[in-house]
C-alpha cells in the first residue's frame, strides 16, 4: 500500500505532545526511496504510452494514482520536518539558549543549524527577548532554590551560592532565566 511509511512517520511525531522524538533517519530514507521508485515507474509507463501510440492500454489512470502517492509522501516528509522545526522554536523559548543533552541527541545534523539561527534571532540588537515575558512589578523578588546549582555571579560582581532549599532575594532580571529552567522557584 502506498504512503504507509510516510503515515508511520507522521504518526510517530504526533504521539509526542511535549517533546521531540529522535530523528528517524531510516524511515525518512525509506519514504524518499518510495518516492523515487514511484517516479521512476511513472516515467517508464509514460514513455511506453507515448512510444506505442494507441496500441497499448492507456496508462493515464495508473500514472495518476502513483502521482497521488508521490504527492502524499512528499506532504508527509515536509510536515515531519516542518513540525520538528516548529517544536525546536518553542523549545528555544522554553529551555533558553542551551538545550539539555538528551534532547540534543535527538536532533539530526541538519537540525542543529536552524537551532543556531533561532538562538541568534531571539537576541536582536542586544535586547534579549526571552526576558520579562510577564510584566515585572518589582525589581527584586524572593526565590527558593530547587536544586544544587553552584555559584551564581551577579551583575554587580558579588557571588552567591545557590544551594538546595536556600532562599534568596535577587534582582528579577538576573534570576528569571533560572526560574524558567526550573532551578529556582518564585515565592510570592
Amino acid at each position: 500500500m502506498f504512503g504507509e511509511k510516510g503515515y508511520a512517520l507522521v504518526k510517530e511525531l504526533s504521539r509526542y505532545e511535549d517533546s521531540l522524538p529522535p530523528y528517524n533517519t531510516d524511515l525518512v530514507n525509506e519514504v524518499s526511496n518510495e518516492i523515487k521508485l514511484l517516479i521512476d515507474q511513472n516515467k517508464e509507463d509514460a514513455q511506453m504510452t507515448t512510444d506505442e501510440g494507441s496500441g497499448a492500454p492507456s496508462m493515464v489512470s495508473t500514472i495518476r494514482i502513483r502521482h497521488a502517492a508521490v504527492k502524499r509522501n512528499l506532504r508527509c516528509l515536509m510536515a515531519y520536518h516542518y513540525n520538528r522545526i516548529r517544536c525546536l522554536r518553542t523549545m528555544r523559548w522554553e529551555f533558553g539558549s542551551i538545550l539539555p543533552v538528551d534532547i540534543r541527541a535527538n536532533l539530526s545534523s541538519a537540525e542543529s543549524e536552524p537551532w543556531q539561527l533561532i538562538c541568534g534571532q531571539s537576541v536582536t540588537g542586544g535586547v534579549n527577548l526571552a526576558v520579562d515575558l510577564k510584566p515585572p512589578k518589582a525589581l527584586y523578588i524572593e526565590v527558593r532554590c530547587l536544586a544544587d546549582y553552584g555559584n551564581l555571579e551577579l551583575n554587580d560582581g558579588s557571588v552567591i551560592l545557590l544551594k538546595k532549599d536556600s532562599r534568596h532575594y535577587l534582582p528579577r532580571n538576573e534570576c528569571e532565566e533560572l526560574i524558567r529552567q526550573g532551578v529556582l522557584r518564585h515565592i510570592v
Binding site: D18, E94, L133, K137, I179, R180, Q181, R185, H186
Partner: peptide
C-alpha cells in the same frame, strides 16, 4: 504574575 518554570522543562 509569578514567573514559572517553562512547561516543557
Amino acid at each position: 504574575a509569578t514567573i514559572e518554570a517553562a512547561n516543557m522543562v
